[in-house]
């Protein structure tokens, strides 16, 4: 197991110290998903987390993003300790600063590509001209001609590019990606990865990536493997 400095520094986007996640079971001992994990992710870097199915990668991602809370330990997201915050306070912390990309895209089926990308901009009333920004974001991923298409009219690769545009449109400080190529063929997956890393570099976004794909993990600056509730640097 690798020990990483615990104190958050100015260059740190995410820090976890002694993070554990247990699920209490009535009939047996508690199920330990994450055990005493300490992690330090520096701003602008890319980190891959791999592991077998059910190893707890996605649970860790959810806790680091402030979507879920640990059973014990601390998590600092953008310098703020999240376990003391309620759900709304954590949401406010993410607003405009955290983006997500999912394996199954999670686009709103009744919204056009443009409207899907405008969604995070509309949540922040201070943002001016959301339509213009969303158009630019879609143009960046090569979908300038498909602005008014519904997800059902787009291919899997195109849908994931819309999801990328949605994730990057607010120029987030951190992007969490959960198996972004899991539902795509190799060629399309490769194109998506290229877009992902280009945008990450352009906006100096901290990238936390959960994947099964060793090649994808290898493209990240750091690669951790989660096994038996413990995190190991590869």
């Amino acid at each position: 197991m690798t020990q990483i400095p615990t104190a958050p520094s100015r260059n740190t986007s995410i820090t976890s110290s002694h993070l554990s996640k247990k699920i209490p079971l009535k009939s047996a001992q508690d199920l330990i998903i994450l055990d005493n994990i300490t992690l330090h992710i520096e701003t602008g870097t890319s980190v891959a987390i791999t592991g077998t199915s059910g190893s707890g990668k996605t649970t860790l991602l959810g806790i680091l993003a402030g979507l879920d809370l640990p059973s014990s330990g601390q998590v600092h997201l953008l310098g703020t300790e999240i376990s003391q915050l309620d759900e709304d306070q954590r949401a406010r912390l993410r607003l405009g600063k955290v983006g997500f990309v999912y394996q199954s895209f999670h686009l709103m089926s009744h919204l056009t590509a443009l409207e899907n990308v405008m969604l995070p901009l509309e949540l922040d009333h201070t943002i001016a001209a959301p339509q213009q920004q969303a158009t630019q974001a879609l143009q960046q991923v090569g979908l300038g001609a498909r602005l008014n298409h519904l997800p059902s009219q787009l291919s899997g690769g195109e849908q994931q590019r819309v999801a990328l545009a949605r994730a990057f449109v607010t120029h987030p400080k951190i992007l969490f990606a959960d198996e972004p190529t899991g539902n795509l063929d190799q060629q399309t997956g490769h194109e998506i990865i290229e877009h992902l890393f280009t945008l990450q570099a352009q906006y100096r976004t901290t990238l936390v990536l959960v994947t099964h794909d060793p090649a994808l993990a290898a493209r990240c600056e750091r690669h951790y493997r989660l096994e038996q509730a413990q995190l190991e640097l590869q």
Binding site: E87, A91, R94, L119
Partner: peptide, 10 residues
Amino acid sequence: ILKTLGASRK
């Protein structure tokens, strides 16, 4: 998704 993007319960 709205919640992950920062939308509050309100």
